[in-house]
């Protein structure tokens, strides 16, 4: 077994940004890394029992849009139209399924099977008044020093 370690801080709570931490964590675990993810602020949404993650189209000038054969950035004014968030979330999920991309739930399960340690930020839980039973089983709660104790020895440390 390799003794390599990876520490990730997950701060975002949207469908698209749920992927980098779970993909990297599950893959690193498959490569025999010991992995911890610290979920803080909006990142806590990724630990909820029922995921209700959406694509936020607003203010994202990098959102690709197919215009016939070419892909162009979607105009921000279109992104702001009512119903766009729900529509783009549905489209993204369909596209991911069609391309064989795992769901966030599936990747999260794979992380847990592979003993990736998931730590929720206790301060954010208090701040947003979450109830502990809104989160999946197996999550530990801690603070900055909990993360740093592991991250201090990590070979890879990412802030996402």
């Amino acid at each position: 077994m390799s003794e390599k370690k990876m520490a990730i801080i997950a701060t975002k709570g949207t469908l698209d940004w749920a992927y980098p931490p779970f993909i990297l964590a599950s893959t690193a675990a498959a490569l025999d890394y010991e992995v911890q993810i610290f979920f803080t602020f909006y990142g806590l949404q990724l630990l909820r029992k029922k995921l209700q993650l959406k694509i936020s189209s607003l203010g994202n000038p990098g959102m690709p849009m197919k215009m016939g054969p070419v892909t162009v950035p979607m105009p921000v004014v279109l992104q702001a139209l009512p119903g766009m968030q729900a529509m783009m979330t549905t489209m993204m999920k369909q596209k991911m399924k069609a391309k064989g991309v795992a769901s966030v739930e599936e990747l999260r399960d794979l992380c847990m099977e592979a003993d990736v340690k998931l730590i929720g930020c206790q301060m954010t839980v208090d701040l947003f008044e979450f109830s502990p039973d809104e989160f999946i089983d197996g999550v530990e709660f801690g603070g900055a020093s909990t993360f740093l104790a592991f991250a201090g020895d990590a070979d890879i440390c990412l802030y996402i």
């Binding site: 993909i23 599950s26 893959t27 498959a30 391309k99 064989g100 991309v101 795992a102 794979l110």
Partner: peptide, 13 residues
């Protein structure tokens, strides 16, 4: 077949 990154690696593991 038909699976995208990182699923082939995870399934192989």
């Amino acid at each position: 077949r038909g699976l995208n990154c990182p699923l082939p690696i995870l399934r192989a593991k």
